[in-house]
Design a protein around this nucleic acid. Structure first.
Length: 267
DNA sequence: TCTGACCTGCGA
DNA sequence: TCGCAGGTCAGA
């Protein structure tokens, strides 16, 4: 579900509400699908003060005084401070000042892993540069594309190449850059790579300003949805007119996922 | 590099 | 009842 703009919006909400607070008690429900088998028990967080929350791609890294919690929202994960405990609540952090934050995840595709600060987090280290960082640029993209036979849409969603782009923003960025999603990454020119990086960053920054895209599950920590779904140009718009050329938007399947594009604009 | 699997809910 | 859903990984 959530891609870079959504996860960054969640991060900002957590910082705003909980940075510097100490966990006094912790409740856990079903965790067998969510907690990494190598993780320390989450009860270790009791007594720990939240000192920072970092993000790389779609992962959040919560830094406490002597522990770090790596977390991914999967498709349906939500960190919230208002919804009451329900069937799909898996964790609740209760803080010293009486505030609380819970994690709910109906599909349980999310991920939680708690470790000491010195522990190397392999999932985190394996990620490519964050899609909004300077490290992801035209030169880097072109260099990696040269060695890849993947379709460019599939390439963009490979988190080891660039971290944070998922199904929504891959389709939207390629539409804006006028690049067909099935083009082989290897065939992109340096100029096209520059355009693609620029458009991908632009659409994610625009989405971040609206606090992300909400179709159903994704929620900010305050329970509200994002607002960018009104500004999507092709995603989930099969059969509708292209906002640029008025041609019909098509859907195709790549790697088992839907891709939306305009055959008229994306040559 | 590709496919299927993980899990649940929703809408057709 | 079936197909689909914004993600990721293991295994072929």
């Amino acid at each position: 579900m959530p891609e870079l703009p959504e996860v960054e919006s969640v991060r900002l909400g957590i910082l705003e509400g909980f940075l510097g607070k100490r966990i006094s008690t912790l409740w856990t429900g079903r965790l067998e699908h969510l907690l990494d088998p190598q993780s320390l028990a989450l009860q270790g967080l009791v007594g720990q003060r939240l000192q920072a929350v970092e993000r790389r791609g779609k992962y959040l890294l919560w830094r406490f005084e002597s522990l770090q919690l790596l977390a991914h929202l999967g498709m349906s994960g939500v960190w919230g401070d208002s919804a009451p405990r329900g069937k799909h609540t898996h964790v609740e952090f209760h803080f010293e000042d009486g505030s609380w934050l819970s994690y709910t995840d109906p599909r349980q595709f999310g991920y939680l892993s708690l470790h000491s600060l010195s522990h190397t987090l392999h999932r985190w280290e394996a990620l490519g540069p964050d899609a909004l960082s300077r490290a992801w640029n035209a030169k880097q993209l072109w260099h990696l594309c040269q060695r890849s036979r993947l379709a460019i849409k599939v390439f963009l969603m490979d988190q080891t190449k660039v971290a944070g782009i998922g199904n929504i923003y891959a389709s939207e960025a390629l539409f804006r850059a006028r690049i067909h999603p099935e083009r082989c990454a290897q065939e992109l020119s340096a100029e096209e790579c520059a355009t693609l990086v620029g458009e991908a960053k632009a659409v994610m920054r625009a989405s971040l300003k609206k606090r992300g895209t909400t179709f159903s599950d994704y929620r900010l920590t305050n329970g509200k949805g994002g607002g960018f779904q009104k500004f999507l140009q092709v995603f989930q718009k099969e059969g509708e007119p292209c906002p640029r050329c008025r041609g019909r938007i098509l859907r195709l399947e790549q790697g088992g996922r839907s891709t939306f594009f305009c055959p008229g604009c994306q040559g």
